[in-house]
Write a protein that binds this DNA or RNA. Sequence first.
DNA 1: TTGTTATTACCGCTATAGCGGTAATTTCAC
DNA 2: GTGAAATTACCGCTATAGCGGTAATAACAA
Lengths: 71, 71
Amino acid sequence: MSGFDLGLMVKTHRKKAGLTQIELANLAGIGKTTVFDIEKNKETVRWSNILAVLKVLNIEVEFKSPLAENV
Amino acid sequence: MSGFDLGLMVKTHRKKAGLTQIELANLAGIGKTTVFDIEKNKETVRWSNILAVLKVLNIEVEFKSPLAENV
DNA sequence: TTGTTATTACCGCTATAGCGGTAATTTCAC
DNA sequence: GTGAAATTACCGCTATAGCGGTAATAACAA
């Protein structure tokens, strides 16, 4: 499914942090349009921009695989 | 740090799957240059392209936060 | 209600990610 | 060693993500 809603998660965390989209955009060093796109789950967003937002919001990313890959 | 090396993970999984970069690119429906960029950890890559690669390689993404966010 | 703020949505413009092609380099099998 | 395959790296070109500005809508308070 991938059914996970990153946009909603970002939005929820932003609200909890008491930030507007514009404030979050400034903190992350990206444009407001991009924050909006992320919250709308537009996947055409640059990975670096998503990372910037997640950093501000203290959200961590983890990649998991079926393989015991722990390099 | 974010110290996690997604590029290496992709490369390792690609190898284990017995795919060349070009084959992976074709399977993911993206260009070979982009696969190369991902393995080189270029963060300027489109999120959708990373997702496409992860899907082919059966790698899952998880976002975690300090907050009990399970919406 | 009215006013204020935030969100959503659109618009051009610009910068650049993504693309295939190609070449250099590396890797690996023989 | 030689040669084939894969990887790395570069090159233009094109499509588009990202940008700020703005406007419309929504949300919420007084």
